[in-house]
Amino acid sequence: MIFFCDFLKHFSDFFLFCYYLDWVQRININLSAVKRRAEAIPTRRAVKKECQAAWLLKAISCIDLTTLSGDDTFTNVQRLCHKAVHPVRQDLCDAMDIDQKGLTVAAVCVYPARVADSVKSLKFLGAKIPVAAVATGFPTGQYSLETRLEEIKRAVADGAQEIDIVINRNYALGGNWEGIYREVQMMKEACGSAHMKTILATGELGTMTNVYKASIVCMMAGADFIKTSTGKETVNATLPVGLVMTRAIRDYYQITGYKVDLHLSNI
């Protein structure tokens, strides 16, 4: 009976995807309009003085402090975790007359092989900062689906509470939105209780229309976040891309009532 209920749920989810697929295929983004809107945003009045400091401190609390280097070791992961717990120098806090207690970054982000080290370091520091792991053959995603799913499961087993996946850019460039939907849905299932951030690698998607379509399809497949880029592409987060993805999030919310978060990456 349980398996039959699962079958009905997956059938229902896929039926809804097929229902909206025709809409997704007909989407077209006006690039000139996006660029005009992006150019207008920096001309607006900025926050200043105390408000600016408050916004900067808020921005720190939204950062995934990251190390994704081939020479990562337990020692530099340990240093990263210490920085995550104490993100602002004490002399700056004193100058602004603020208490740094309780101010941390949002997460520590590492390769799957360094998840256990991060969990151990944060536990030693007494911090409840989640560990995020890049997975699914980051940054290219050019691995078999079985390998990508297994990488997610191993990272979660080691203590990762957030998983950053990368989508199949080959599918996106070829317009295979059903393929992306199916893969991302399986990745979401592999994440279990961990949050899933879906990296679109927007600099490799070719067009803003593809960026919007990929955003919608990944949200339909269960993404908790949609993320601009791996930080490894030639072009990473840009203001026009952020506008298109934000619009996709708004449209998806209006249709479904479900809010998905946006994550910008420009390492």
Rank of each mutant, 00 (worst) to 15 (best):
D94L: 11
A214C: 12
V131L: 13
L262H: 00
H82F: 00
Y253N: 14
I41W: 04
P240R: 07
E204L: 01
T209S: 13
A113L: 10
I255E: 08
N28L: 02
T43A: 07
E50L: 09
S12F: 06
H10W: 01
I199D: 09
E233F: 04
G192I: 14
Q161F: 03
A84L: 04
R250H: 05
T73V: 06
I180R: 13
T238L: 02
G203E: 13
I226L: 08
E150Y: 10
A160R: 03
Q161Y: 02
G257E: 14
I167T: 12
V88F: 00
C18E: 12
L122R: 07
F11D: 01
G231E: 01
T209K: 13
I129V: 15
K83S: 05
G141F: 14
A157P: 11
K153M: 04
I98H: 13
L65D: 01
C191N: 04
P42S: 07
C62G: 00
A157T: 08
V156R: 10
C51S: 13
K49S: 00
V105H: 05
M186F: 04
H82P: 00
P130F: 14
V47P: 04
L92V: 12
A38P: 15
A46K: 14
Y19I: 05
W177D: 05
A221P: 02
D117S: 03
A40Q: 15
T140V: 14
L65T: 01
N236V: 06
L239M: 10
A113S: 14
R37S: 09
D22L: 08
Y171K: 02
M208T: 10
M208F: 12
L65N: 07
A40L: 15
F4P: 05
V77G: 06
R169I: 13
F15Q: 09
T207I: 08
A107F: 15
A84M: 10
D261S: 15
